[in-house]
């Protein structure tokens, strides 16, 4: 068995005196497809930063295999969609560190066209990024990430703020990429729409609460420890479905 792509061992991280992650041990294996779930402030983004290498652990270690290329896809909501670039120009940005001059080489043109075709948006290369639908925007950023030929794709809330159709589209696409051998780790707060569909989950709340298949992680005990609230889990077509089991949040109709 080969070494993990990235391994965190007893890693702790925080800002100033406030700990965000504490004693996290987690290894990203080649070809895995994992969702990191947890409430707001649970450290999901900080864990991504440790995996990306943009943050250093204050305690413990993060070891990345030297030959591993990692690409990152940001949240769509953080992007300035009015920025004056076309789809092809945006995708080509991932070659910024390999060629200095502005104009692309023939090989780069071919590579960009190939990756856009692979993701089904080849005919949109000359469009302004604002003109894309939510699913196409996500495809464009995945294309930019894939142009670096990564072994690992890290994504921050890839379905945050998108409609159901787009969420299905993104899930479908990520599944295809995973089947082609790409390791994918993403964060999500969407238990039913996203997490339940993934092969592996990490339940996180400052530390790893549980790690495994959805059937092992999406269970009331783990969810209560992770989210701090009681939830019921039903089974629907062989997949877990989370429902809020707390009586206190049920609103009663106003009399009269």
């Amino acid at each position: 068995m080969s070494a993990p792509l990235i391994a965190l061992a007893d890693a702790s991280f925080g800002y100033d005196a406030a700990p965000v992650l504490s004693h996290v041990t987690y290894a990203v294996e080649a070809g895995e497809f994992t969702g990191i779930v947890g409430p707001s402030g649970s450290g999901k983004t900080s864990l991504l930063k440790l995996l990306l290498g943009t943050a250093k652990p204050q305690r413990g270690t993060v070891v990345r295999r030297p030959d591993v290329a990692v690409s990152y896809v940001p949240q769509l909501e953080t992007v300035n969609w009015n920025f004056p670039v076309t789809v092809a120009e945006c995708v080509l940005m991932s070659r910024a560190s390999t060629r200095l001059l502005p104009w692309p080489t023939q090989e780069e043109r071919r590579d960009v066209a190939a990756v856009l075709d692979r993701l089904g948006i080849g005919d949109l290369a000359g469009r302004h990024i604002r003109e894309l639908s939510g699913g196409q925007q996500q495809r464009m950023f995945i294309a930019r990430a894939l142009l670096r030929r990564p072994q690992l794709l890290l994504m921050d809330e890839p379905t945050s703020g998108v409609d159901i159709g787009t969420r299905h589209e993104v899930l479908h696409l990520l599944d295809e990429l995973h089947r082609d051998g790409l390791a994918i780790v993403l964060t999500t707060h969407d238990l039913n729409g996203m997490a339940a569909h993934l092969p592996n989950l990490v339940a996180l709340n400052r530390t790893v609460i549980a790690h495994g298949a959805p059937s092992e992680v999406i269970v009331p005990e783990v969810l209560e420890r992770t989210f701090g609230a009681r939830m019921e889990v039903l089974q629907h077509l062989g997949m877990p479905v989370v429902v809020d089991g707390s009586d206190q949040v049920r609103l009663r109709p106003v009399a009269g």
């Binding site: 894309l132 159709g165 299905h168 589209e169 899930l171 479908h172 990520l174």
Partner: peptide, 13 residues
Amino acid sequence: VESGAPTPLAGAA
């Protein structure tokens, strides 16, 4: 601008 039809979900990912 919404453009292009979404890819249908062919089975669970």
